[in-house]
Amino acid sequence: MYYDVIIAGFGGQGVLLIGDLLSLTAMEEGYHVSFLPSYGVEMRGGTANCTVVISSEEIGSPVVSSPHAVIVMNLPSLKKFEPMIKPGGLLILNTSLIPEKEVKRSDVERIPIPLNALAEKLGNTRLANMIALGALLEKTKVVSFRSVEASIKEALAQKYHHLIPANLEAIKKGAEFLRNSK
């Protein structure tokens, strides 16, 4: 098994958090994993992003030039990462902030989700990242929801532990959205 994904958005959208959660969960499932975040100047203003590689074999490069999947939470991220997706790969995009007409590639599978709108319905726009993760998990089954449930405590700082149920609910919501839109 080998899977890699780039997750991108602007600082504060929680793209590093879902990358971290996905990686940690994959490690707990017994996979090799690397989580390479952008750091420093990119944190403010521009895009924050991370590259997650999950593999049943030892991981070579944590740097990926043509990922299997890309999750983009805002328009600058789409511009930057859409061209890189492997042909036939997956593009999950946040249509609350990205007009779908901006998508150029026709050789990738497109999953448009109004992440912010759905998160608002759940009562907290900051859950948009978890909805995206839910969609990725539903689509790829790269790790199981049950494993995420088990590892989320370690990925979230103690002071956010009271939000775990809401986060898990958001992940379910993302998966459900995908199932219903088929």
Binding site: V33, F35, L36, P37, G40, P62, V63
Partner: peptide, 10 residues
């Protein structure tokens, strides 16, 4: 370097 310092791995 920064890649090795900032990257998370098991």
């Amino acid at each position: 370097d920064g890649m090795l310092g900032q990257m998370k791995e098991p």
